[in-house]
Design a protein around this nucleic acid. Structure first.
Lengths: 139, 139
DNA sequence: CCTTGCATCTGTAGTCGCTACAGATGGTAC
DNA sequence: GTACCATCTGTAGCGACTACAGATGCAAGG
């Protein structure tokens, strides 16, 4: 089944189904030149190759890992030029990992603050809302 | 010092300094009607009251806790109408807390994936970049 | 009174990464 | 041939700001 489609190229809907990337998003990636302009049918519909499918799922995978479009672009540019610098890719990954860790730290702080605010409020019927009070408090 | 400024109202720069909210952002909050239109000097410059300063720092505090503008708007509307529903505020807080926890879970997954990818690469000089390989892998 | 120079003004456009239309065709199965 | 889904282009919207440009306001020093 996949082979038949493959022979004729994948229409955009198949690309979307295979990768989980929204059709509009695929066209968006083309517009920002993250994906190349694919071949077209006589009628003008996009026909993608298997390599392009792989490229799109690379993008999808990377996005799921939280890499920015620009980071992905940098990686793909290296791939396109057959000049993948493992060190650079590793550095990007480590840096990105650092920012993920920082986000986690930040969110945990929020979690603690929100938990204590909610606890204050859950306990008993106070006249004024202690959450609002806390938020309005100076300093 | 604050008292003198207070007597004449706070210009927008003072509001910004006191709360840490960017001047352009303060005007943005006015545009979206999160902040009221303040009085103006004869020349047309904004002059804020102390209550408006408190309101802005409420917004700032809430944003720092990750509440959306719409959530903040809902809370402030209750405050404005003197009808603060403690239960509602508590529910909003708990719901928001849930989404923070979910984000943490998600980021921890990313953290694990990125860590193992980075480790693969850091270990020894492999011919092709294992990070790129992993991202390109089908399935 | 006048200048200097920072603060503030309005209005618009850009950011990121999509998403959601509208209205017009393409392609395919019966 | 026709029904009907898939795809097309182009544009505008989201959230929450941020960044200008070009024109004024305002307070202190000479």
């Amino acid at each position: 089944m996949a082979d038949i489609t493959n022979a004729r190229g994948y229409p955009i809907g198949a690309m979307s189904r295979e990768t989980g990337v929204n059709i509009e998003t695929i066209r968006y990636y083309e517009r920002i030149e993250l994906m190349p302009q694919p071949d077209r049918t006589a009628g003008g519909n996009r026909q993608y190759t298997h390599d392009q499918l792989k490229r799109l799922s690379f993008i999808k995978r990377s996005r799921e890992l939280g890499f920015s479009i620009d980071e992905i672009r940098a990686m793909l540019t290296m791939v396109d030029q057959d000049g993948v610098s493992c060190g650079e890719v590793h550095a990007m990954t480590v840096e990105h990992l650092g920012s993920v860790k920082e986000k986690i730290r930040h969110l945990k702080k929020l979690e603690r603050a929100l938990t204590s605010m909610a606890a204050e409020c859950a306990k008993g019927d106070v006249p004024d809302c202690p959450i609002i009070e806390t938020l309005f408090d100076e300093r």
